[in-house]
Design a binder for these strands. Structure first.
Lengths: 217, 217
DNA sequence: TAGATTGTTAATCGATTAACAATC
DNA sequence: TAGATTGTTAATCGATTAACAATC
């Protein structure tokens, strides 16, 4: 089965919703109910769930515990990943706190920063090292994924260093696009442009894309 | 001209790149150079720029200052927006610092939090109020956009309050989807699922979507 | 049984890419 | 002029939605 980035992202969100924010006493859910909660169409939910190899029952819907179990199977096929936060400024430190312990399979094991004052201390529960030690620590701790929160001006340089050190996946919050070699996975989140996007559509209703709050049929 | 969310987001990124991270001495740029820097195709760049009403010159490319001016015209048609950060935890405070002063047209004028210790103080340069004052302050300061950084469990309740108070656009970082009425603009950024997405594709190369680093022809 | 919901296929929609005439 | 690059159209690709037979 070939799972696209979009489907994969939605599966993660279905799981989060069902495990963390759903009444424990409910055992089953219909595609249209999940759709309503997610702000998607029921068709899309059903299509997404097709990749799981788990099937609901007409009239009863999907059994939540089974559904979550199958999403786990697909998503966490990858076992435990060690993650590093690179750039321990405000954003980097906030992400350490926010992302740590959300997923058992993703563990933030190190932070890196240029600032000598931050090196060799524990910041937000994560040991912080000087940027000079990236290669050493990445190899030593088998760090596969980096969350990049450095200033735009050094983003590409730091990326090259991370890739050279063996990092295989990067989540980039720096405000510039970075280039990576084939074989490395990249996800870019541009916070500034996300805010600008909201602002733009906020009083340009004429341009606003149509709403996406559907019901089925 | 009808500009999609995607095009709009890319225009914002072109502008950021050209204004903040591009050598000052260069006056012109070709579509394929911008494409290489952004990790996109030249075709896509040219198509995106079509909505600007500004035209490049064959053989000379696009004049950067003019290009930026036209992107400004389109993107900031909306003039100044007042923005509030709702939920002044680690993430909220980091975003205050990170997003403030990035765009002259977007000004963070208030933060809100449930914690009485945070109320009536200035946090990261932004005056913080107790959540009880949302309606009053939003109206008083004409706040149009909210950056939502509250825990998932209260996200919908807080959203309803914001919308009732007159907020027209929401950038949601809470880890659950929220529902909004027609007429309000919503952008959701799920940080946890973004990280999970990187992790998933990081050692599932078979599933990885194809790379996107093209050249033209 | 009758009615509701599923899995899946076909149709639609939108976004990206390729191609190329125009043009500097 | 010749060659490179543009704007724009047509072709392709991928994602979403609609429709419906299967089925509980």
């Amino acid at each position: 089965m070939n799972i696209s980035t979009k489907v994969m992202g939605r599966l993660a969100r279905y799981r989060a919703l069902l495990t963390d924010y759903f009444p424990k006493e409910k055992t089953h859910i219909f595609s249209h109910d999940l759709a309503a909660m997610m702000g998607l169409s029921a068709s899309q939910i059903r299509r997404d769930l097709m990749c799981l190899g788990y099937f609901g029952v007409p009239r009863y819907g999907y059994e939540i515990s089974e559904l979550v179990k199958h999403i786990n199977n697909v998503l966490d096929a990858s076992k435990l990943h060690h993650v590093a936060v690179v750039g321990a400024g405000n954003l980097g430190r906030a992400l350490m706190t926010f992302l740590e312990s959300r997923r058992a399979t993703l563990k933030i094991v190190a932070a890196f920063d240029d600032d000598p004052d931050k090196a060799n201390r524990v910041l937000n529960g994560v040991p912080c090292f000087h940027m000079d030690l990236v290669e050493e620590v990445v190899k030593r701790d088998d760090i596969r994924i980096a969350i990049l929160c450095v200033p735009g001006a050094v983003a590409q340089r730091v990326t090259d260093l991370l890739v050279k050190s063996g990092v295989k996946g990067i989540l980039n919050f720096a405000p510039v696009p970075i280039r990576i070699p084939v074989g490395v996975v990249l996800e870019e989140i541009d916070l500034t442009s996300a805010l600008e996007r909201v602002a733009f559509f906020t009083n340009n209703r004429a341009n606003a894309p149509k709403e996406k709050r559907h019901a089925d049929r």
